[in-house]
Each structure stands twice: as structure tokens, then as C-alpha cells.
Design a protein around this nucleic acid. Structure first.
Length: 296
RNA sequence: CCGGGGAUGGCAGAUCGGCUAUGCAAGGGACUGUAAAUCCCUCAAGAUAGGUUCAACUCCUAUUCCCCGGA
């Protein structure tokens, strides 16, 4: 081993902060390869609305072992899932491991870049996430019940889980019940950390709220100009029931398609929703003291 | 001009003579399993001027503005 540092590099930051451009320039300097940690850019057919780099636009998913080459830098985990599948954290962790392996083989330095907070932490801090497939029938049945009843049920089956799941957060309660149902084990027992913790240098990109707002607004308009409405409609035609249709930008674009609101109004709504999302992202990272923030 | 209806937080929109919902937005927060998801907390109103009343956003009068119908 001639490499002394095993530290991974993470470039994180809110959407539209300019982190991708930063990561690319960093990769060029260091002979790096990028692993995208983005829960929406993984999907084929979701291109314009996810602000995916154009080079990775496609309606057909490819292997997680195959990078897209963007400005000469390999990017892994873009456009690797079909938009009718439910691609979750555990899928992403599996694919990230594949990508890391490929990068190691190519003797490049991995740079993990993205805005999906949970994905980054799960990978870097080594969360152990068993792959338990969603059970649509069980979910449907549980969704009929009131939050109170669901919470009570969880309290009976796994009281410890109730300490970290809020009483009205039915989505998380249902997921916990689903995992208990599938494994016969307590949800709270399954969330132990795995041994595969990575060291990482975390670089945070944040240009300040004023430029964030400007970036986001011009990006919203640009997306509509590039044909976001068309893309959203195509996605809906293919998968009318997909939860992905509720994704920021797609939701608003579909309203334009349905004549519920005009383009201009949709652009404003998109910007608003995106800005809110950026706030949530920052709120997640605010509690960490190990991020070196830089303003670009 | 006449008749009728209305004016509630940044927006939408209920209710009520004594405590004014709720949704969205805004601000803050949680988050190890759908995460661009989901959840929690906070802020914030009654066109204007009088009057009735122990008490008025709610009742009465006038003014201003808006909507509908008729000339």
C-alpha cells in the first residue's frame, strides 16, 4: 500500500449550490471519480427536473458499475434505476459499494457528491440497512388505519422504536411495522451500525441564501424551457401511479400540463419548493460540526 | 342610479356575542429504512369611523371598496 490516506472525500451541499461543478474541478485535480448521492438523479427518465448533467440524460437505466463521463470525469450512480421501481436507501448502498469497487479498480479517488443527506451519512458512517422490500399490500392495509392505532401497534411490537418515531409520522411507523412483519425482529434491533465505517473529509458548499435564490429561480425557468412539462407527462404516462410524480418540479410541471396553473406560476412554485428543500438540507447538516464549509 | 351579496393573517378559506379554525407561504426543528419523502413547533388577521353591550371579528349605523342582478 503506497497510499497513506484512506480518507474519502465528500462534497455536500444544498441543491443548486454549485457543488457538482466544484466536485468536477476537484476530481480533475486529484484524478478522482464521482459517486452521486442523489435520490432522484438515480432514475432514468428523470433528467431535466432533477438537474442531472445533460451527459447522463437517458430514459434507459444502465449498470451501477458503468460511469457516465462528464467533462472527462467518471460519474457513478446517475440513471441506474427504472422509474417504476422503488429504489431505496438499501439499494443505493449496495450500488455505491459496487461503484466504490470500480473506482478502486480504476485507481482513482472516490468523491462522494450529492444532496441526499441520508444516503451520504448511511454510506460514510456505515449504517447497516438490511434490504427489506416494500410490501405494497401491507402498506395499503396499514394506510387505512388511523395514526393512533398504528402507533399503538408499534408500541406493542417495538416500544423502543417509538422513542425515535413521532406519533403522527405514519410513513415511518408503517415502514417500521413492515420491517417487523418481514423479519420477525424488532425494527429498533435492526438499526445497529455496521462495522464498515469510512473516514471522510466533508466539504460543504454553500454560496449564501441570496445567490441560492437567484440560482434556483433561473434554474426553474430553464427547466421549463428545456421541456420539463413534456418529461413529466411522459413519466406519468409510463407510470401513472408512481410516487415519483410527487417530486419537486415534476409535481408543478404536471399542474401546467393539466392546465391548473400557468408556466410563470409553476416556475414560482418550483422555486419556492426547491428553496424549502434547500432549507431542510441545511437543517440536516447544521448539527454536524465536521463539515468544512466553503462559499463558492 | 336602484336592489342584493360581500370585505377575516402574505394568500386561500371556515366559525363564533366571551377561546377565532384549517390549508399554503414564511421562520425554526426532527430525521438510520419511500428522504426531492415524512413529521413537529412558531409567527401572523377581522376595510374605516361611530354606536349597542359587562364583553364584538361576530349585532346596528355611516363611509370606502369589490362582486352579482336590474335600469
Amino acid at each position: 500500500m503506497k497510499s497513506t490516506s484512506k480518507s474519502n472525500i465528500v462534497v455536500l451541499g444544498p441543491t443548486a449550490s454549485g457543488k457538482t461543478a466544484y466536485a468536477i474541478s476537484l476530481a480533475k485535480q486529484l484524478n478522482g471519480a464521482i459517486i452521486s448521492a442523489d435520490s432522484r438523479q438515480v432514475y432514468a427518465g428523470m433528467n431535466i427536473g432533477t438537474a442531472k448533467p445533460q451527459e447522463a440524460f437517458s430514459d434507459i437505466p444502465h449498470s451501477p458499475a458503468t460511469p457516465d463521463i462528464i467533462y472527462g470525469v467518471p460519474h457513478y450512480l446517475l440513471t441506474i434505476a427504472s422509474s417504476n421501481s422503488s429504489y431505496t436507501l438499501s439499494d443505493w448502498l449496495r450500488d455505491a459499494a459496487i461503484a466504490l469497487e470500480e473506482i478502486k479498480k480504476s485507481k482513482k479517488i472516490p468523491i462522494i457528491t450529492g444532496g441526499t443527506m441520508l444516503y451520504i451519512d448511511a454510506l460514510v458512517d456505515g449504517y447497516d440497512v438490511p434490504n427489506i422490500e416494500p410490501n405494497p399490500e401491507l402498506r395499503k392495509a396499514l394506510e387505512q388505519q388511523s395514526p393512533e392505532i398504528l402507533y399503538k401497534k408499534l408500541q406493542e411490537l417495538d416500544p423502543v422504536a417509538c422513542t425515535f418515531i413521532e406519533p403522527h409520522n405514519t410513513r415511518r411507523i408503517i415502514r417500521a411495522l413492515e420491517v417487523i412483519d418481514a423479519t420477525g425482529e424488532k425494527f429498533s434491533d435492526l438499526r445497529r451500525a455496521s462495522a464498515s465505517r469510512h473516514n471522510a473529509t466533508r466539504i460543504g458548499i454553500f454560496p449564501g441564501w441570496d445567490s441560492m435564490k437567484i440560482n434556483i429561480e433561473s434554474r426553474s425557468h430553464a427547466m421549463l424551457r428545456q421541456g420539463l412539462v413534456h418529461e413529466a407527462v411522459a413519466l406519468r404516462e409510463k407510470y401513472p401511479a408512481s410516487p415519483l410524480l410527487a417530486t419537486i418540479n415534476y409535481k408543478e410541471a404536471l399542474q401546467v400540463a393539466d392546465g391548473v396553473c400557468a408556466q410563470e406560476e409553476a416556475a414560482a412554485k418550483m422555486s419556492q419548493a426547491t428553496l424549502r428543500y434547500a432549507h431542510r438540507q441545511m437543517s440536516w447538516w447544521n448539527r454536524r460540526s465536521d463539515i468544512g464549509w466553503i462559499c463558492v
